[in-house]
Computed example of a mutant assay.
Amino acid sequence: MIEVFGPLKGLLKLGSIASTKIDNAVFQLHYKVTAPILIVFSLLVTSKQHIGDPIECISKDDIPEKVLNTYCWIHATFSVENAWEKEIGKEIAYPGVDKYKEGDSRVFHAYYQWVCFVLFLQALLFCIPRYFWKCMEKGKIKSLVMDLHNPVLDMEAKSSKINTLVDYMVRNLNNNDNYSTLYMMSEAFNVINVIGQMYLMDTFLGGEFSSYGAQVIKFTEWDFSLRYDPMIRVFPRLAKCTFHRYGSSGDVQRHDAMCILPINIVNEKIYVFIWFWFVGLAVVSCIALAYRVATFFCYDLRVRLLRFRGSLVREEPLEVVARKTKVGDWFVLYLLSKNMHSLHFRDFMVEFARRLDGKGHHNDISEA
């Protein structure tokens, strides 16, 4: 396990204390948690040392086992549709496995060949909104914070950096709306991505994914004589395969085989987890997007959040700043409050309020 997943430790590493925070916890669930999880799953389904051979077929004929396994893996196995409702142990030996007759409806299973690739593609898709936001953000907050995240600074250096930051904010007052809009677009991309991926998996699994988790929950209520784990309908552990070859006289011979699919024991658990994770992530992401929209349109909410982040700042400077800035300026201030030390942020807000109130430049920050 260490050999397989060891290279991923860099992806799973949490950000350092000094790293710049340009998003929130819900945003990070997409690229810091979900993407690495999907990559781990992609590696897991390709690790033969943990699950053995992905397929093992049984036949009474003289077909070499390796040839039969390779053929059935490449050309897909199938289940007989009308065998799902028959009684196990009397009519059939296993759900979906029955004698196939011409005209019977069959469901072919080939998507397990593509699971590792699809999981990896999904992991990349979860990184796209983060990449978009980083490209649009261009390191702005990191440049503005300078060393003000450090609690210990020389007073002269601190005063210089705060005054430089205040000068920038005053010069760019009411010009930050595009910056905040791009962030909200990134959060919207997260919502579109997770919901879109649920539709993608539903298509990939033949329309079974949308109700997958719900069916797993309800499966204990089914009649015992007909009951089978609904996961095996999506990822069968035993399926049929038909191998054709030429006989000694040149006629086409048909050979029937049953194939065990150990890989699907892993796949079914992976997709049960993904179903619940994606549903939860979609709900949380929608709430986060609604919260973001509320902050853009609700002045009182922005004031409360700024007051919460700047708990050391007196009420008067906060009110001045909130009253004279637009939503884009507020968003920049909110990100600054997440990255600056609270004492430095207090001094910055006091000086910023002083400048906005027309009281001019204040040289000695320590007197604030």
Rank of each mutant, 00 (worst) to 15 (best):
M1Q: 10
L8G: 05
L11V: 02
L11C: 03
G15K: 11
G15A: 06
S16E: 15
I17T: 05
A18N: 14
D23E: 08
A25R: 13
A25E: 13
V26S: 07
V33K: 09
P36G: 09
P36N: 10
I39D: 11
G52A: 10
E56Y: 12
C57G: 08
S59Y: 15
V67A: 04
Y71G: 01
C72K: 07
H75E: 09
T77Y: 13
F78A: 00
F78D: 00
W84Y: 03
G89D: 14
K101A: 14
D104E: 12
V107N: 00
W114S: 09
C116R: 07
L119M: 04
F120H: 08
L121V: 03
A123P: 02
Y131C: 03
E137Y: 08
K142F: 03
V145N: 03
M146T: 00
N150D: 13
D154H: 06
K158E: 06
K158N: 03
S159H: 11
S160Q: 15
I162C: 05
I162P: 07
V166H: 07
M169C: 09
N172V: 02
N174P: 05
M185A: 10
M185H: 13
N193L: 00
I195A: 06
I195H: 08
I195W: 09
G196I: 05
Q197R: 07
Y199E: 05
T203F: 15
F204T: 00
L205T: 05
G206W: 08
G207D: 05
G207W: 03
F209V: 02
S210C: 15
Q215L: 04
V216D: 13
K218I: 01
L226C: 07
D229H: 08
D229E: 09
V234M: 06
R237D: 14
L238R: 12
P262M: 06
I265N: 14
I265H: 10
E268H: 04
G280A: 03
R292I: 06
R292T: 10
A294E: 13
F296Q: 05
G310W: 00
R314N: 13
P317W: 01
A322M: 06
R323H: 07
V327Q: 14
D329A: 03
F331S: 04
L335V: 02
N339D: 12
M340V: 01
F345S: 01
F345Q: 06
F348I: 04
K359I: 10
S366A: 14
